[in-house]
Design a protein around this nucleic acid. Sequence first.
DNA 1: GCGTAGCCTTACTCACGAGTAGGTATAAAT
DNA 2: ATTTATACCTACTCGTGAGTAAGGCTACGC
Lengths: 227, 227
Amino acid sequence: MEAALSGGDTAGGDPGRRPKRLPRTVRERQILDAAVFVFSQHGYHDASMDEIAEVAGISKPMVYSYLGSKEDLFSASIRREATKVIEAIAETMTPGRTPEMMLYDGFVAFFTFVSQNRDSWRVLHRLAANQGGPFFAEWAEMRDRVIEVVSTLMVHQGSEGGLPEEIAVQGEALAAALVGATESLADWWMDHPEASPRKMAARMMSLVWNGFGDILRGDYWVPPHKR
Amino acid sequence: MEAALSGGDTAGGDPGRRPKRLPRTVRERQILDAAVFVFSQHGYHDASMDEIAEVAGISKPMVYSYLGSKEDLFSASIRREATKVIEAIAETMTPGRTPEMMLYDGFVAFFTFVSQNRDSWRVLHRLAANQGGPFFAEWAEMRDRVIEVVSTLMVHQGSEGGLPEEIAVQGEALAAALVGATESLADWWMDHPEASPRKMAARMMSLVWNGFGDILRGDYWVPPHKR
DNA sequence: GCGTAGCCTTACTCACGAGTAGGTATAAAT
DNA sequence: ATTTATACCTACTCGTGAGTAAGGCTACGC
């Protein structure tokens, strides 16, 4: 339980007998690491501040002193992890490419992130989305960015379809479904981790780009350079 | 808290002064109704047995006497609501039709159910899927049944004579994504309830049957009889 | 009538966990 | 050397909510 978090309890290779007394910024990082871990294991309510403090290798009052209440702590955890995901995906979202490739690369980036940050993903997925109050706001921001991208793609390309209003609503709905499908597939992947991130991304593309109709005809999606 | 200790919440319009003393089966139904409602409002942890008892119009020990612990009660709620959904969808799943129409009708049935049973859906999706332990098992069982149906549909249709192994894995993954997309779209719908169940089903078909590629070309899905 | 079984209640116990009071020890500043 | 600030702790309070003890009221069989 305790190992593998935050690079151990003592900072640096210093052999002194008093490894304690670390500066605030370091402790805050450790606390957040612990919080993400514990929240991901037990969910918001079943996670206790005592356990978070213990995992962080510090006493409870320090947690309160640095990060505030349990809500504040959870909020901070979400914000930090959400930023990670967003940045991981945003890096690949360079403009001037085909929507198809943007989507594919976005999926690859996402699944790569999930495979390397399971705890982060667990915290974000459905913990943040579910609880009422301030957590939802953090989550919604990330979701809105996805919706934005999807809507942009639609307006950019297929604006023949009708009023901009209708397109926007349609885009929102599709983005929601898209995100849900991706999340769900990520969950499934955690139980069947044989496939590579690229393979998972290709599966997503088969479903949401080609569509089920094509799939039933045996027409799965493959990257352009292999066609 | 409530002024009306004996009046008010009892079912039946009888004006008699002693409407209490109902048989066990009736009380159990009332308790489950109350439980679904309260759980859907507050989530598992924030729902208190006291409130469930109060909403059911009964005292707390009765709840424990009839339905057992809080976990048992939640479990029973999930099981009952899950059965409802499955049956609603299963009714429309008559064999001998095209996969396309089976899928569409399944979506219509599902979205119709959700629109008429918001609390059920909240309990099932937003809660059961998230809480760990025995609750997740109930949920997973239901989800697996849907996934199984979808993947057999795919294998049956798409692989006349080849690659059963690969198709099976592929099918499971895609079914998981498909279910996730549907769930997620249902959640979105609860915040944007303007559209009809048919419209929502059509949106799902646009995404997962036609695919995003077609959508960007303005090619949305429409029911066959309108083509 | 009288027992027994089932419906139903008030009024507790008890554990758990968020948040805090109040104090110690070490490093930096003067 | 003394003050000040910061890191850090043990040991509490206190509300909340799951679960229970112990008994009352109503009906129905005999």
